[in-house]
């Protein structure tokens, strides 16, 4: 393990510690995770640069096709990253599922976290009836959980319809 766990991307940025996201996108992410279960599912939600607003959901191939790890297909990643550049977008959310364990970043997730501006969203599909969804910032190897603020629409921001997911621990 040492070769991998000793490796870490350096990161620093000033960030908001809450993920505000449309319920419809969360539903799509959960559907993707359920569809790929028991393999881990992964993907991104992109948004305008600097907006911290996830608007475009892109499910990605898990090139590893594994129940315990994931990696974006390198060529698909290049294509998606170029599209983002063309649209003046950036990665706002990087998500993946854990299919037999809790929705909390593993040591591997922490060592390989390389997008300093992204919210790392984890979905656990270990329970068939309920899906655990939690969001984290991962900076310089430090994991900080943040609330997931699900809204009906970004147009209205914090509406009475907003649901704050309780952080389970």
């Amino acid at each position: 393990m040492t070769g991998v766990t000793a490796f870490r991307w350096g990161q620093s940025a000033k960030l908001a510690f809450v993920l505000t996201i449309e319920q419809a996108i969360l539903d799509e992410i959960v559907a993707h995770a359920r569809r790929d279960h028991p393999d881990e599912a992964c993907g991104v939600v992109t948004g305008p640069i600097g907006s911290d607003r996830p608007v475009r959901h892109i499910p990605m191939e898990n090139a590893e096709r594994s129940t315990t790890f994931y990696r974006f297909d390198s060529l698909e990643q290049l294509k998606v990253w170029r599209e983002m550049d063309d649209r003046d977008e950036e990665v706002v959310v990087i998500y993946h599922s854990h299919t037999a364990t809790e929705a909390y970043p593993s040591r591997t997730d922490v060592s390989l976290a390389a997008e300093p501006g992204a919210h790392y969203l984890l979905v656990s599909t270990r329970e068939p009836e309920s899906t655990e969804i939690r969001s984290f910032r991962i900076l310089d190897g430090v994991v900080t959980e943040e609330p997931v603020n699900a809204v009906q629409s970004y147009l209205f921001g914090q509406t009475p319809n907003a649901v704050d997911y309780e952080c389970r621990s």
Binding site: E64, S74, S106, T108, E115
Partner: peptide, 9 residues
């Protein structure tokens, strides 16, 4: 940077 991780190392 590769986007990778998962429950097991």
């Amino acid at each position: 940077p590769a986007v990778a991780g998962g429950a097991l190392g």
